[in-house]
Computed example of a mutant assay.
Amino acid sequence: MLRIFSVAYWAFIGVSCVVFFAGAVLVWLVTLPFDRRRVVLHLYSSAWASFYVYVNPLWRLRVTGRDRAPRHGAAVLVANHASLIDILVLFALFRPFKWVSKQEIFQVPLIGWNMRLNDYVPLVRGSADSVRRMMDHCDRLLAAGSPVMIFPEGRRTSDGELLPFKDGAFELAVRHQVPVVPIAVHGTRRALPRHGLVLRDHVDVHVEVLPPIDPGDDTQALRESARTSIASALTRP
């Protein structure tokens, strides 16, 4: 039954994305003259993504600490990454951040096109040139007052263990002197494993926004402080 439901669910997403993308284009056109940071479009995209979470009867989502994620002003948001649906549930924060995401997602019809409309940040894993372009893009966004959302592990964990964090997110925070906001995402690996698209049985997902960390001037210390905060949160039920 789960296989049948999974096929129906992904098919529903594929078909409904056409309607949602048409709405995104309309929002983009209407707000472009006065919304240079595309906040309204991002909030529309947040509703689009969250819709797929809340209509799925197998998933129950709880968000705590949302007020710690900034509504205004630049910040670097960092979250652990265990599943494809991390992206959907983090959109449910409804905060005006810009995603840093792998280049392949930008090539997906409709969803990837919407990411470009939002001015999200593409990254080719393993490419030094792409990393430089990503950092430059994030520099521009942070300077304009937009928070950025980064998975500092760089890829999804295969066994549920938190991977080492890369420096990029924390270099940005130190350079711009903006807070790092750690976010612990619980339960998504059980909802959808790294390999395969067959949904699991009922799962409670919890997005926990943790206390912001002052950037200071030590990238490595900031990186380890953020990782420790998320690792500690993930050990709690």
Rank of each mutant, 00 (worst) to 15 (best):
G126S: 10
V148G: 01
A128E: 10
V124E: 14
F170N: 02
S127C: 11
K166Y: 09
L117I: 08
F170A: 06
T157L: 01
N114M: 13
A144M: 12
K166R: 14
L163C: 06
D129F: 08
R133Y: 12
K166I: 01
L163N: 07
L141N: 04
N118E: 14
L123N: 03
F165C: 03
L162D: 05
E153M: 02
M149K: 04
L162F: 10
R132W: 05
L172M: 09
A169L: 06
R156F: 08
Y120E: 09
A143N: 13
R125M: 07
R156L: 05
R116Y: 05
H137A: 11
R133P: 04
F170I: 03
M134L: 09
G154D: 03
R132E: 10
F165T: 00
G168N: 08
G154I: 01
A144T: 10
P164S: 13
A143F: 07
D119V: 05
G145K: 03
V174N: 11
M134N: 04
G145F: 02
A143G: 14
A128P: 08
F170H: 06
P164Q: 10
K166F: 05
R132N: 10
S130E: 13
G160W: 10
D159H: 09
I150Y: 00
G168Y: 00
S130Y: 11
M149G: 04
G145M: 08
G154V: 08
D119A: 13
S127F: 10
L123H: 02
M134P: 05
